[in-house]
Design a protein around this nucleic acid. Structure first.
Lengths: 207, 207, 207, 207
DNA sequence: TATGAATGAGCATTCATTCAT
DNA sequence: AATGAATGAATGCTCATTCAT
């Protein structure tokens, strides 16, 4: 197997100054990725947009890949924060409420930065971040599955892992396609309808 | 907007010789994409594997992107053939049968060449082929929608476009995740269970 | 141990055109090495001086090191040609004649291109060519030793390998220092005197 | 001609603290040169190994070259100390004894730190220290020549400068090749034999 | 038509050196 | 004096594309 370049941040960036530089670099990378595409995201360009020198970039990130990885990581954390909050919130609520909330959160997650989401989805294999993204997926599955298990009595007899797989796949895809394909022209009414429908499908399936 | 390189084959490849060369190039591209990844798919490498010179490559394809586009196109045609056949076959059958067939065909489509499917999914944005892929998606939607409309009386009252969007998204995602994530260790039994579950969810939703 | 970059020419350069390009590159490298020093011998610069593009450079040489290696190789071949010719010539002659010839040839060898000789001597460790240079040294030792063994009866009792080591070291050093340190102001008379003295020392030692 | 960077230590290092820092830097440079090679001897690395900051490095040395120059200088001083001591010791002794002592000292000098010796030999041209090295050579020549002149009556009629050049070249080369090529596997017996032979050659030549 | 040598803009990365703190 | 974050020119190398043969 080919040796992959390192993708972990080089230093802990404990000092405020360093932290600012690191943030500027990650932010610049995300912006370029969104506005100009992956091809344009060269290290010199990134440094320029971040307002630092290439040298500084390499002081904090060992490679271009590490930078993209950091963007992915940041994005995943934002999404996970939403998902965790939603699931905590609905922990004691009935399935219908919970599923509706989950569908809503899935759409919200995609709406944080739809273009970034798309570019990252494409670039993940390049960055060796598949592992991290899978960890992310696993966490979502674990959380959802835990909820479903706690609500077993509202549901028909069904393997929780399987149910989780089916439901998460469906919800994620509907959110993804809704946000990425319908693009800008996405009225609140349409969103509400889609949430209703997706919820109906999933709840119908679980009961 | 930046000028994109052309992505259409240069000539009609009417002669048999040309046709063979074009096929060899597309095939070589697909193989390298699958076996060595996008990074290794350089034009020189592709020409070499195809057994022709780079010069010949550019005689038939105006750019590297055009080559990848041709691979995408070929793959999409194969999938569409399956989908069309399936829908033709189930045109007069009840929803349950039809949905089961559709789910099955979605998994079969992903199984034609899972690795290629994944690589292409990642590379599509790079090739400017989004348009073609959307045409592909549109066709699937149109066909499914036509079927659903013809079966309206088996279904609850629901906007056919909306139902199509929901169902196709869910089915596609389940097939995609099933094949790409569960990778090789995918027993026939598991596939059957997944088909059952997906069918149940979709049919339950439509009725 | 760290992986060294490759240092073998990339293709056989059988065609005349290729051959010319390869020669131009090697020649350009040697010139820059001599005239501007190792630091200036960048790949872009070398290509420029050779009148080709960097791309062509990398078509024939896999790395900068390979180029320097080729220069070393060429230089070593030139020297070996002199040495072999000299030893063939004196094969049947008495020690005094042979040693004088060898000393002369050593100085001639250094005079082929004294500056290049010096730069290469310095760069050899960088190029991973130590192996080749040692092969070169071994050949010299083998040839000299063979001669000495064939002349054993003119010599005192002495281990041939040891005698070869002592004599070759001494002759090489005198030639080296003569040419490189005394630089330009090296009259024919001085050279003759040095040849006389070195010959005297070595012959005296062997008898 | 290109402007060379300065190579003299920046301050007199009169204070004890400064002296310690300077020593640490020179020592660190030597260690890295020996253990990791010239390529790894970056200023940041040197400072790190010396336990100071890059900033401090530049407080005492105006350039990387100056550091290497200091290492060369230190090494040369060590060698000169040996050579001077040896020549003082043999000042009143017969040629045979003196030459044997000189040969021995030459080998000892190379054995102080063979790897450092080799690296420095390679790096000298880069540092602009040729002048200093030549001064070193001149001193050796002067000392040896003075000895030879004082022993004229034991020798045949011969130009002392010429004799010095020949003898020093031969001795140095034999010591150099002995230590650097035969590497580790250099038994005491072999060394003794080589000293005997070299002495025989040089003494035979001078008488 | 086919070939493959040649092109050169462009990219990731390094490292000696500076300077604000 | 000391620090080490920041700098940015410079370098080795790749690869899509062209064009003389």
């Amino acid at each position: 197997m080919a040796r992959k370049p390192p993708t972990k941040p080089r230093k802990n960036a404990s000092q405020a100054r360093s932290r600012a530089t690191v943030d500027a670099l990650v932010e610049a990378t995300a912006r370029i990725l969104v506005r100009e595409g992956f091809e344009k995201a060269g290290t010199n360009r990134i440094a320029e947009v971040a307002g630092v020198s290439v040298g500084s970039l390499y002081q904090y990130f060992p490679s271009k890949e590490a930078l993209v990885a950091a963007v992915i990581d940041r994005h995943n954390r934002e999404i996970m924060a939403l998902v965790r909050a939603a699931l905590t919130e609905v922990a004691d609520m009935p399935i219908e409420t919970a599923v509706r909330r989950l569908v809503t959160v899935a759409i919200e997650a995609h709406r944080i930065d739809p273009k970034l989401h798309r570019v990252l989805a494409e670039q993940i294999p390049r960055t060796g971040q598949l592992a991290d993204v899978e960890a992310f997926n696993r966490e979502v599955h674990t959380l959802v599955r835990a909820y479903l298990e706690s609500r077993r009595r509202e549901m028909r007899k069904i393997d929780p892992a399987l149910a989780t797989f089916i439901c998460v796949s469906a919800i994620e895809a509907i959110a993804h396609n809704t946000v990425l394909n319908q693009a800008e022209m996405l009225s609140d009414k349409m969103v509400r309808t889609l949430v209703d429908e997706a919820t109906r499908m999933v709840v119908g399936y679980l009961r």
